[in-house]
Nucleic acid binder design. Structure first.
Lengths: 146, 146
DNA sequence: TACTTCGTGACAGATGTAGTTGCAATGGTT
DNA sequence: AACCATTGCAACTACATCTGTCACGAAGTA
């Protein structure tokens, strides 16, 4: 199972907001053109980011404001906003293993801590990257292009 | 997106194979009863594990043999056998971002290494656990029960 | 041959993803 | 007030994946 493209689209959105903030009004139409998708898809993702408290979306005029500094929004924050996991668990179990089987009734206990540590390894790596890294990374790439 | 239950089911299967190897013939029917699912589901997973070279499945009599020692099969090996990722990438991008947009044409370059490091953090944690950890863990849990 | 078990194709139902259309609501501008 | 660009959202489609189920042929043992 791959993680949905909405996560990387969200990072794309944040990068655009920062890159074009002085040149264009960054609307869902503008973002949809950069990402090559439909404006409604963008608005749905913006709604998720807004519900997570990461941005404010301005109606009427259009535009997006961050609620915190770039360096204070990590990839993990974006991931959490975009990919709501049931009970917060990355790994799924089969429902109701057989309690009469010694393995069946202990499989959760056996696996839970190990799976948790795998999930946490991924999440703590996500916390190392911030939107500020996207800003500086994009500035470098654009400088090379010029 | 949660990772499908097939992964934890596969770990359940391996645990059963080891736990019951001296008491029962471990068939897809037996496993389906412990996991509480359909034997065909089990056989499909066994086929994946077999194709990955982790086990041999015995027809006619029934039963499962590992091709390597328990300590030489990691969670990552099982994960790879069960969850084939397109191009090996955990994270998906939106297809064909706009090459006329400076962000659109650089977004891959900007994100690739960061996403890769996140994926690798997860995978290298998966490599730390082996089926032998499942064996010893289950033995401890069963000893506590008694 | 008879029996057990695996292998596999076909299908169904539920869920999730991505895309599209239409329209009401919002908030500037004139 | 009228106009306009934009967001918010519901409804729908198309498609893929996951899980489960049935049916039946293939493999191997007794």
């Amino acid at each position: 199972m791959q993680i949905s493209s909405r996560f990387t689209v969200a990072l794309h959105i944040f990068t655009c907001v920062d890159t074009f903030k002085d040149e264009h009004k960054v609307t869902s139409d503008f973002l949809a053109a950069s990402i090559n998708t439909n404006p409604v898809i963008i608005r749905k993702i913006l709604t998720q980011l807004k519900n997570a408290g990461l941005i404010n979306v301005i109606r009427g005029t259009g535009g997006i404001e961050l609620t915190r500094d770039l360096k204070d929004i990590t990839f993990y924050d974006v991931y959490q906003a975009i990919e709501p996991l049931e009970d917060g668990d990355l790994f799924r179990f089969h429902e109701s293993p057989n309690p009469e089987c010694p393995v069946g009734r202990n499989i959760h206990l056996l696996l839970d801590d190990k799976l948790k540590s795998i999930q946490e390894a991924m999440e703590s790596e996500m916390k190392k990257y911030t939107l500020n890294d996207l800003r500086s990374g994009m500035q470098e790439l654009l400088a090379k292009e010029a």
